[in-house]
């Protein structure tokens, strides 16, 4: 099955990247993960080389930045849910992964000094097994992969890259973040984006996916939502499309009395990003409780700054700019069905 057909037909108008520069916001809650949706966006952007039917589509390069998941997770999710060989795409220079998790927050493993050889040498065969040991998939029940209890939980790779972050960037398409500082973040991502531009002399569009940058607010209290927002907008100058994934759980956003700083900041970041973005896709659990045939509700709204800025003569806000709610069912094999209310398989 080609990756483009992994996108359910009802979802296609919303995952399609518009002709103009855009910033989309993706939100999820604890019970309703949005990882499947990120994979669908990856499919949309990266599909055309694998799908020869869509040859006329534009060439889009992708930079994936993740603070909550490591490369192995995305690799296995991409293969399972999207039918994408992310490792190959990375070698072909269509994808860069910026690791905001391993280098910053995971403990460096004891065997790190042994890995003085270039990190390219990590064998692909051992990767899937490690992936299953990193973090359980957040998602509907039944998707939690079986853990192999014997293997210790460790990620060996990024520790060595931490030593030589700059040299490793072009070699394996992976740039770890070594400092939670926003300046480092911006330069690392910019370097990743430029490295994608280099091989092809023509300027191609870049999709920048930021997965859970709100983790920075919690881990680095010095970072304010305004700073983070402004960094994202600065990155948007270089990347034509930006997809930001934030968590929208009530516990993170609703204010207790007296309001706690993290709640205020989480709320402000989400609201600011929502005002800036031109489309909001929010996943949440079914309001009426758990159902076997529905994983959650996907609400699509127009966001704060509607599409073409607040200017264009053709004032045609088409159907997809209107608010809409769809149900989805994420199955254990990674496939996703999206349907209208009442149109499930019963």
């Amino acid at each position: 099955m080609p990756p483009s057909s992994r996108i359910p037909p009802l979802l296609q108008p919303y995952t399609r990247l518009p002709a103009y520069d855009s910033l989309f916001l993706l939100t999820s809650t604890l019970g309703a993960s949005a990882n499947w949706l990120i994979i669908r966006f990856l499919c949309e952007a990266l599909a055309n080389e694998q799908d020869d039917a869509g040859a006329e589509r534009e060439d889009v390069a992708v930079v994936l930045v993740s603070w909550m998941r490591d490369w192995d997770f995305w690799k296995s999710e991409g293969r399972k849910g999207g039918g994408l060989d992310l490792e190959r795409l990375k070698r072909e220079g269509r994808l860069r992964f910026v690791d905001g998790l391993s280098g910053l927050y995971l403990p460096s493993t004891p065997e790190a000094p042994q890995q003085s050889q270039p990190p390219v040498s990590t064998s692909g065969a051992s990767m899937p097994r490690v992936a299953q040991n990193v973090l359980p998939v957040r998602g509907p029940p039944g998707r939690i992969p079986t853990r192999t209890p014997t293997a210790p939980v460790h990620i060996a790779k990024p520790a060595s890259e931490t030593l030589t972050p700059q040299s490793s960037t072009p070699a394996d398409g992976q740039s770890p973040l070594i400092s939670p500082d926003l300046k480092t973040l911006a330069t690392t991502i910019q370097r990743a984006m430029e490295s994608l531009k280099n091989p092809a002399t023509r300027s191609r569009k870049t999709l920048l996916i930021l997965d859970s940058p709100d983790a920075l607010l919690a881990t680095q209290p010095i970072i304010t939502p305004s700073d983070l927002c402004s960094t994202i907008l600065q990155l948007h100058e270089k990347a034509s499309h930006v997809l930001v994934h934030l968590n929208a759980d009530d516990a993170l956003l609703s204010l207790s009395t007296p309001p706690q700083p993290l709640e205020v900041e989480g709320h402000n970041l989400l609201v600011k990003m929502a005002h800036v973005s031109s489309r909001i896709l929010s996943c949440r659990v079914l309001d009426t409780g758990v159902a076997r045939d529905v994983s959650g509700v996907l609400r699509i709204t127009g966001g704060g700054s509607n599409t073409e800025g607040w200017w264009d003569e053709s004032d045609n806000r088409s159907e997809e700019e209107q608010g809409r709610e769809l149900l989805y069912l994420a199955k254990g094999d990674g496939s996703v069905k999206v349907f209208e209310r009442g149109a499930g398989e019963g």
């Binding site: 916001l25 939100t27 999820s28 809650t29 309703a32 929208a248 759980d249 009530d250 956003l253 609703s254 709320h267 989400l270 609201v271 929502a274 909001i280 929010s282 996943c283 949440r284 659990v285 309001d287 509700v297 609400r299 709204t301 127009g302 966001g303 509607n306 806000r317 700019e321 209107q322 608010g323 809409r324 709610e325």
Partner: peptide, 18 residues
Amino acid sequence: GIGNEAEGAVQALTSNTP
């Protein structure tokens, strides 16, 4: 809107009507 509807809903469906 946010915080007033179901958990995880960021923007109301009735917002910004054409």
